[in-house]
Amino acid sequence: MSSTLTVTAKGQVTLRKDVLRHLGIQPGEKITVEKLPDGRVEVKAARPTGHISDIFGFFKNEEGISLSIDDMNQVIADGWAGKR
């Protein structure tokens, strides 16, 4: 199924909600556009490229010591209370 889009005077194109839904894109997320031969483009949802292991250093204090579950719960509670 194809869709026809209009290019604005600024050279911008707005993707319709059904197209965004098909791509799995939510407001604020990014897309990638790859230029292909013959004037074609490929539009895809930009997916994070990090590794799950990147999160391991996230739950450490300033000294590099891993936080306990109680410490993590306190950080979460402070965040909800607007203290961070």
Rank of each mutant, 00 (worst) to 15 (best):
S68Q: 12
D70P: 00
E29K: 01
D78S: 11
K30L: 14
E63W: 03
V41E: 03
D38K: 13
V7R: 11
D38L: 10
A9T: 05
V33R: 11
V75W: 04
N61Q: 05
V33L: 04
T32P: 00
T4R: 07
P37M: 02
E63G: 07
E63L: 05
K60T: 14
T49K: 10
R21S: 15
K60R: 10
R47Q: 13
R40Y: 07
T14F: 08
I25F: 06
G50K: 02
I31R: 02
G64D: 01
R84L: 15
G24L: 02
P48F: 06
E63S: 14
P48Y: 02
H51A: 06
A45I: 07
S68E: 08
G82A: 07
S68N: 12
G39H: 04
T4W: 05
P27Q: 05
R84V: 14
T32V: 09
I31H: 07
R40Q: 12
K10Y: 04
V7G: 03
G82F: 12
I55R: 09
K44F: 06
T4S: 09
D54Y: 07
I55F: 15
L20Y: 00
K17A: 15
N61M: 02
R40D: 11
R21G: 11
D71Y: 03
M1K: 13
L15R: 05
L15S: 03
I65S: 14
V19P: 01
R47N: 08
V41S: 11
G50V: 04
K44N: 13
P48S: 04
V75A: 03
P48L: 04
F56S: 10
T14W: 04
K17E: 12
Q26L: 04
K10T: 15
I52K: 05
S2V: 06
I31C: 06
K17L: 10
S66C: 00
L5Y: 13
E62D: 14
V13H: 03
T6A: 14
K35M: 03
D38Q: 14
K10Q: 13
E63R: 13
I76K: 14
D70A: 15
R16F: 11
H51F: 02
R16C: 07
Q12L: 14
K44T: 15
V75C: 02
G24M: 00
G39M: 04
Q74V: 00
S68P: 11
V13F: 00
A45K: 15
L36Y: 05
M72L: 14
A46F: 12
Q12K: 12
I52N: 06
D71N: 09
G11T: 01
L23I: 08
V7Y: 03
L67D: 06
S66Y: 09
G11Q: 08
E63I: 00
A9L: 10
K44A: 09
I65K: 15
T32G: 13
K60Q: 15
P27I: 00
H22L: 10
D38F: 07
N73G: 07
E62V: 06
Q26I: 02
W80F: 15
T8E: 08
G50C: 07
V75K: 10
G28H: 01
V75D: 02
L5M: 05
S53L: 10
L36G: 10
L23T: 10
I25T: 14
R21Q: 15
T49P: 02
N61H: 06
T14G: 09
K35S: 15
V7D: 04
D70R: 10
T14C: 05
K30I: 00
G11M: 03
P37W: 00
I69V: 13
T6P: 04
K10E: 12
G64P: 03
V33G: 06
D54V: 00
P27E: 10
